[in-house]
Design a protein around this nucleic acid. Structure first.
Length: 196
DNA sequence: CACAGGATCGTT
DNA sequence: ACGATCCTGTGT
């Protein structure tokens, strides 16, 4: 599998929703595993009541406040690690949650980590994506413009992009719940619930 | 120091 | 529909 060039730092230093749309079709690479990103969600700074940055800077969300292009890993419900990518300039909080992906290479490694049979749901959900890549707290703050470790490389952009409200943020203000910051490739086989 | 609840998943 | 499982953020 030939993965494309590493995405440069400048790719991440743009408004979070623009980077989020442009992440669709790009490739997450770790060793022999290559994933194609099919679904993401954008999260902003203190003005976004759905974001981890809504209460300002904390030890957990520190990476969101740094320069774009770094992995932000956090534990959800005490069980699942979530992979996010920071965006923007240092001092602005923003990150993109990777919600679904498809395996382009390294299927055996991914199956071993997930401990399930192959199906279109193998990496359909943010906890599944991080588990398939073998990520946890050790990757918090890891640069993605590499080379080495976890990388983001150029892939094939989808023909279409669909924008929908974000998932699992019932606690947020109405305006933020309705914000269409969930972006997905409607032609992809791997999409998280609720499927469009 | 205590406590409530969460950007989910897998099974029932 | 529900329980797992633990860390974070907030308040006292």
């Amino acid at each position: 599998m030939i993965a494309g060039a590493l995405l440069p730092r400048a790719f991440y230093r743009r408004p979070v929703e623009a980077v989020a749309m442009d992440l669709l079709g790009q490739r997450l690479v770790r060793d022999e595993v290559v994933l194609r990103i099919t679904e993401v969600e954008a999260y902003g700074g203190p003005e976004d009541s759905a974001s981890h940055a809504r209460h300002g800077q904390t030890a957990r969300n520190e990476v969101m406040w740094g320069p774009g292009g770094h992995a932000y890993l956090y534990l959800c419900y005490g069980l699942h690690w979530m992979l996010n990518i920071s965006t923007g300039e240092s001092g602005e909080a923003a990150a993109i949650l990777i919600r679904a992906a498809e395996v382009e290479a390294g299927l055996d490694t991914v199956l071993g980590r997930r401990r399930v049979r192959a199906s279109r749901d193998l990496l359909a959900g943010p906890g599944r994506v991080a588990q398939g890549l073998g990520l946890d707290r050790a990757f918090d703050g890891h640069p993605l413009f590499g080379p080495g470790g976890l990388e983001l490389r150029e892939g094939v952009r989808p023909d279409r992009v669909r924008a929908l409200p974000r998932v699992g943020i019932g606690f947020a203000a109405a305006a933020d719940r309705e914000r269409p910051w969930r972006f997905l490739d409607p032609d992809a086989s791997s999409l998280s619930a609720p499927r469009p």
